[in-house]
Design a protein around this nucleic acid. Sequence first.
DNA 1: GAAATTTGACCGTG
DNA 2: CACGGTCAAATTTC
Length: 314
Amino acid sequence: MEDQTKFLILQGCKLARDLESNLQTLANQPQTSATETCEAIIRIFTSALEKLMMNINCKESTEGHQSCFPRLLPDNNWGIGRQVGSDHQVRAKLHLKAEMGRGSCDSESCATFRGLGGGILSMEVSSDLNKSASSLQRSRRRRDEGQKRTMKVAAPQMGNTDIPPDDGHTWRKYGQKAILGSNYPRGYYRCTHQKLYQCPAKKQVQRLDDDPHFFEVIYHGDHTCHMSSTAPLFPPPPPPLANVIPMDLHLCGFSGANSTIPAVAGSGSSTSAARDDKEVIDYPVADLATAMFNPGTSSTTTIDMIFPNSKEGK
DNA sequence: GAAATTTGACCGTG
DNA sequence: CACGGTCAAATTTC
């Protein structure tokens, strides 16, 4: 069993122990607290199971890379990803396949959880450090050094549906391109504070061809501008062991710099602690935050928990 | 008037 | 040479 899988299982066990120890407390709280914690546990164990299954499939089939990826995106009632088909998605898929093809699947971190309230449905972390240095020399383009994180984000169904949900940072659009084979243009954003703080963070946002309700958001580089934020949206490149869970935990980053829901993020010490201490998992908070940013997404479970009457009146 | 966005051009990579 | 990432001038928004 690979380290990441062990890590997932251990995290699940820890969360279960926490639930056990806090059961009396939770019993006196709204039922959603226990429910969400249970869901978080299920999510973690499901991810562990997926990774275990993925390993089996990867080892069973020499061209089994193809069987790896779809298992990461099970089409179950948790509403997570689907098979992808458009060109750019195929490219992303091929990228992942290539990465996964190097030995076992743990050469990359790839994790998909339930919709987390309809927000990020899947996430892929990849490092391009292995690219040849010769391709990084000139000033323009192909400067892919550093981490690349791909997220699938549900588009808001209210308000401006043309932009993905706020991720807690301020971005400045510097370009837009029509992408061959895609129906929707790709937007290029960099951190607003790029000049002031030499913040290298960038992101690309593109609506998915086969599911316009979702965006593919690709992040490049980490924020070095932590102006009003107590912690970066994404931590420094995590050690391989910590790639899966912590990255999802940084959904808490949605309550970062310019968050509109500080109260939620600050409702417990676990959110900020999670950034520094990977022992702490706070999926419910992430769920809450994401759900609040995505009030009308396909995964209504969490939002329904928060606002039982949310279905009506929208 | 500053900041953000738009958009055509430029340029590197494959 | 096509494609895609970035630049930068023009335009819009606040």
